[in-house]
């Protein structure tokens, strides 16, 4: 089986698909972290929000695409409210306060999911257009998963253009480098941070609704993805798009092939890579801020 190229190719696609999901989640987290040294542990909860809200919209409207478009926006609004009510108040507090607050949010969200949607796993079906299998190398592969890969790549491309080719993108990079200097040049760094934070929430919501047809939707789904996402952020390096995509690919592939090739070690492979990175390059592979 392991020598069957078709099988390995399918695993490669699975790895790619998982990587793209990790990318959608880690990029927002990484850039907000790099911009303001703010770590939002509730980022995973926003991903779950995207999945739950997407589920409900899909049920009400009968359309996956309505859910796909509206759920990320809803999560973006939830993020903006969280920011206004809570996060803004602890922006200048130390990291411990921020970690405790956002850690607490995880449990509040968890209970909210239980109360609203119950404990059982919910299923969302892929849209009819994509609910078929295609044949590659004698294997069948769900078209929806290929769509997810394309989605991740498209988001990467859009973010790259926005960051590298627009004036606002240059302001974000400048503020990650040196926020004080950016503000001396007239950049309202706090407002920029808010915009980046909301974009991160939008992408987390997008990841949630996009993942719903593949994994089922249940309270606690966020905790499963939060740890690999944080590992991606640390390995990739804070604040950089390149770090987020490379880190996601590394962890996504490592976890997927780890389970296939060395299942006994699969659980610890990411941590081994994390440890190795922290020893060899404590700032991650591509930290945005030069030191």
């Amino acid at each position: 089986m392991l020598t069957d190229p078709g099988y390995l190719f399918v695993q490669f696609l699975n790895g790619l698909q998982f990587s793209m999901l990790l990318f959608l989640l880690s990029v927002g987290l990484s850039v907000t972290f790099g911009l303001m040294n703010f770590v939002n542990l509730a980022h995973g909860a926003l991903y779950a929000c995207g999945a739950f809200i997407g589920y409900s919209i899909a049920v009400w409207t009968g359309s996956f695409w309505a859910a796909f478009l509206l759920a990320p926006l809803a999560v973006c609004v939830i993020g903006a409210v969280l920011y206004g009510v809570l996060i803004r108040q602890v922006r200048s507090a130390g990291p411990l306060t921020q970690v405790l607050l956002t850690f607490g949010l995880i449990f509040i969200f968890l209970d909210a999911f239980r109360v609203i949607w119950g404990d059982l796993a919910l299923g969302v079906s892929a849209p009819t257009l994509l609910a078929t299998n295609i044949h590659i190398f004698g294997q069948t592969y769900p078209l929806y998963r290929l769509f997810l890969i394309a989605l991740g790549l498209a988001v990467y491309l859009i973010l790259w253009l926005a960051l590298e080719r627009t004036n606002i993108g240059a302001m974000v990079r400048a503020s990650v480098d040196n926020a004080e200097m950016a503000s001396c040049l007239g950049v309202n760094v706090e407002r920029l941070f808010f915009a980046v934070f909301c974009t991160g929430c939008l992408l987390a919501g997008l990841a949630g609704v996009a993942a719903a047809p593949i994994f089922s939707v249940y309270p606690g789904m966020d905790l499963e993805i939060l740890i690999p996402t944080l590992i991606v952020v640390v390995i990739g390096g804070l604040g950089s798009l390149k770090g987020a995509i490379v880190g996601s690919l590394l962890i996504g592939m490592l976890q997927t092939f780890g389970q296939v090739l060395i299942p006994q070690l699969a659980g610890s492979l990411s941590y081994i890579l994390l440890g190795a990175t922290l020893i060899l390059r404590p700032e991650g592979l591509f930290p945005a801020r030069a030191h």
Binding site: A170, R173, A174, V176, D177, N178, E180, M181, A182, C184, A288, R289, A290
Partner: peptide, 9 residues
């Protein structure tokens, strides 16, 4: 005093 050039730009 450190000139404040943004290295990423």
């Amino acid at each position: 005093e450190n000139r404040g050039i943004f290295p990423s730009l």
